[in-house]
Design a protein around this nucleic acid. Structure first.
Lengths: 130, 130
DNA sequence: ACTAAATGATACCAATCTGGTATCATTTAA
DNA sequence: TTAAATGATACCAGATTGGTATCATTTAGT
């Protein structure tokens, strides 16, 4: 099970580059030095923009900038944007159907672990990853 | 990202049933009440046996018993047996090739989180999930 | 001795997820 | 007007996962 997939990895590197640059960077400009295929990075940057982590400007000379300071962009934000929310728990009965769900001890334990991971992952910011 | 896949879920339920029974239970006997396809449960039980979590006896009247007390079988053991070891970190450069690897801040952070999850997951035992 | 019940070991298949590719539309600076 | 850039989709190939099928081997019971 991967918490950090390639796409998350790419996203972190790209955002770190944007943070360092201080000015708008295009997807193409980000992809080349990182050795990432341009279309892939574009898709990632689009997801980050949709999630409100970056702001984009279109047209010639456009690109991406951070929507807020690096210290307020967490690894958790990035993971959520690129991969969707964490769901550690694949209940076989899909939650609703399991008559034991309330009392299912495994669910409770796993939910607690998931919560801890979210806390950890939110505590790491882009500023820490500079 | 799922920590608890269906197979892990099945494994936990099956092991809990074995623990409650106190005697050997066959894969068929375990599958039916849990509503799990027999061949799937057999594969899972085989993996658990290979990992030394259960002991199996073959032939007529055979089945599976816990290889050690439920309090000494952790959720981590079960996950490792069914899914392989946790690897949160998908380094794009595969570790060896990344010249920044030592200093890669993301790796360090993620490794720390992974370690915490392992601790948590090892702390939960089958006895807690009875 | 024979048979039925059970695990061990594989091989295979379908669905989903993930990384990567391709296209077209839209916006904007030069 | 044009080139450079993002927005939005649609698509494809490989890996993973859940599920199926098969055959060999072991063992208890008759």
């Amino acid at each position: 099970m991967k918490l950090i997939t390639r796409e998350v990895d790419y996203a972190v590197r790209a955002l770190a580059a944007v943070a360092r640059a201080g000015r708008g960077l295009s997807a193409a400009g980000l992809a080349a030095p990182a050795g990432v295929p341009r279309p892939v990075l574009r898709k990632i940057m689009q997801a980050l923009s949709r999630a409100g982590i970056t702001r984009s400007s279109r047209g010639r000379g456009g690109g991406f900038v951070l929507a807020r300071p690096a210290g307020r962009i967490s690894l958790g934000d990035i993971i959520s944007a690129v991969r969707g929310p964490l769901k550690f728990n694949d209940c076989v009965f899909g939650g609703a159907l399991c008559h034991n769900h309330r009392t299912c001890l495994l669910r409770g334990r796993v939910a607690a672990i998931e919560k801890k991971v979210m806390e950890e992952v939110r505590r790491v910011t882009l500023a820490d990853l500079g």
